[in-house]
Nucleic acid binder design. Structure first.
Length: 423
RNA sequence: GGAGAGGUGUCUGAGUGGUCGAAAGAGCACGCCUGGAAAGUGUGUAUACAUCAAAAGUGUAUCGAGGGUUCGAAUCCCUCCCUCUCCGCCA
């Protein structure tokens, strides 16, 4: 969430930036500022009264110790009104803060100056395109049919034991999953990301820290009995590793990678675009996360983008990089690149990665800070990216690499799969 | 699931009504000492908010969370949360 002090000092800029994000309730900014003003005034008065009451209490203690009971009693008699006022002002302050926070969490992050103006996915800018469309055999199949033909993924079996969107990977399909996970983790390690295996369920505080809550609880599976959420991405547990932490400047950047399964309710999705592996309730993903010094975060974002692109290149996939426009960017992001691979049989682009810099938007909620050169605490920047999400990579691999003889496994994966062909 | 113990600063740990943001030790930082290091020694070492142009300073809050008693709460009372130990179950 945005820092109130920043909004206070940069009202015009905040409004101008929110407009780029196509934010519909700019009036919230002034409401926040008014409440902030209230808050400061109220706290000021409360602090003053509390100071008087504290001083009196201290004096009473001294008088009692000196055995001066009469004066102590006289002073006691005067404390009643302060007590009342402290309570009243305290309640008022709490109410103001509650309202302030309710409004504050509704404000999205401010987009970086390089973010293109736009309203929807149509307005995203293609920043880079790599590779060329593969030539497929005449009888080319979409991945869900390939998966059935070679017995790689059984969607119906998943429906039986769980429901739609929970595929069962079988045979070489299962091995391919494991190979991709291991390959992505190894590549992340080479790039300096330290692997962690976090819990797959998180508490409410974690969901709030990375901004899934309070807004997007509908996207997450919730375990009512224990008040825990199934993670929609490893971003949530991994970034929350550093909640309430003050890092040393020399510890930055913190770089972690994690493979987790991800769970998304994706309520209301249907149709051809969600067929097969295109959209699942449970899927595998390797995520990379960084905690960065504010001066370095954009440089690191570019590095993460290049890391993801390197993976796609080594897998031999045609892809493009999108610079998301303000209207299509996530709530918490300041700058996002989406990577999409070309799915040759479906004849469409599939999003396989999203790399974002959240600046201090998450760290402000997480209270994730570092000690800067002046020895003061300062909010760190958080970044993350998928490197990579498996299902659509698998979809693209199957479709784009299909031949008359079967499906060719990319060279870099063979040491992991231990087979070169599916077929 | 049953029984018990406990939550204090970076850590260990003292503190059962006032002088406690909190002893002591460890750690860490800086200095002295040293040819250099170790040892020794000295000093410092929470966070947030407010006030201020800013810093200094000052005020307020925070000893798991919330509420209560009291002039005054880390300390007493209530509720909740969490952790640990033992037993049971179990990969």
């Amino acid at each position: 969430m945005l820092q109130v002090s920043y909004i206070r000092d940069n009202r015009e800029k905040v409004l101008e930036r929110l407009a780029v994000k196509n934010f519909k309730q700019p009036e919230l900014v002034d409401e926040v500022l008014a409440l902030d003003n209230d808050r400061r005034q109220t706290q000021n008065r409360l602090d003053g009264v509390a100071a008087e009451a504290n001083a009196a209490a201290k004096q009473i203690g001294e008088l009692m110790r000196a055995g001066n009971k009469e004066e102590a009693e006289a002073l006691k008699a005067k404390t009643g009104s302060w007590k009342e006022e402290v309570k009243t002002l305290g309640n008022a302050l709490a109410a103001i803060e509650t309202e302030l926070n309710q409004k504050l969490v509704l404000l999205p992050n401010l987009p970086h100056s390089s973010v293109p103006v736009g309203y929807s996915a149509e307005d995203n800018v293609v920043a880079f395109e790599y590779g060329s469309k593969p030539e497929l055999p005449a009888n080319a199949l979409p991945h869900w049919e390939l998966a059935a033909k070679y017995k790689l993924i059984d969607f119906e079996l998943g429906v039986k034991i769980t429901g739609a969107g929970f595929p069962v990977y079988t045979g070489k399909g299962a091995k391919l999953q494991r190979a991709l996970i291991a390959y992505f983790l190894d590549e992340a390690e080479k790039a300096g990301f330290a692997e962690v295996i976090p819990p797959l369920v998180v508490n409410e505080a974690s969901g709030f820290g990375t901004t899934q809550l309070p807004d997007k609880e509908g996207q997450m599976y919730y375990i009512n009995e224990d008040k825990l959420y199934l993670i929609p991405t490893a971003e949530v547990p991994v970034t929350n590793l550093y909640r309430d932490v003050i890092l040393k400047a020399e510890e930055l950047p913190v770089k972690n990678s994690a493979y987790t399964q991800c769970f998304r309710r994706e309520a209301g999705s249907y149709g051809a675009h969600v067929r097969g592996l295109n959209r699942l309730h449970q899927f595998d993903k390797v995520e990379i996360v960084q905690i960065a010094h504010p001066d370095k975060s954009y440089e690191l974002l570019e590095q993460m983008s290049l890391h993801v692109q390197g993976l796609l290149q080594k897998l031999g996939l045609m892809y493009r990089v999108l610079r998301l426009c303000g209207g299509d960017m996530g709530f918490a992001s300041a700058l996002t690149y989406d990577m999409e691979t070309w799915s040759a049989a479906q004849q469409r682009w599939l999003e396989v990665s999203s790399v974002s810099n959240f600046e201090t938007f998450q760290s402000n909620r997480l209270k994730l800070r570092f000690r800067n050169a002046e020895g003061k605490t300062q909010l760190a920047h958080t970044l993350n990216g998928s490197a990579l999400a498996l299902p659509r990579i698998v979809a693209t691999l199957l479709e784009n690499n299909q031949t008359e003889q079967g499906i060719r496994i990319p060279e870099v994966l063979v040491p992991y799969t231990k087979f070169e062909w599916i077929g």
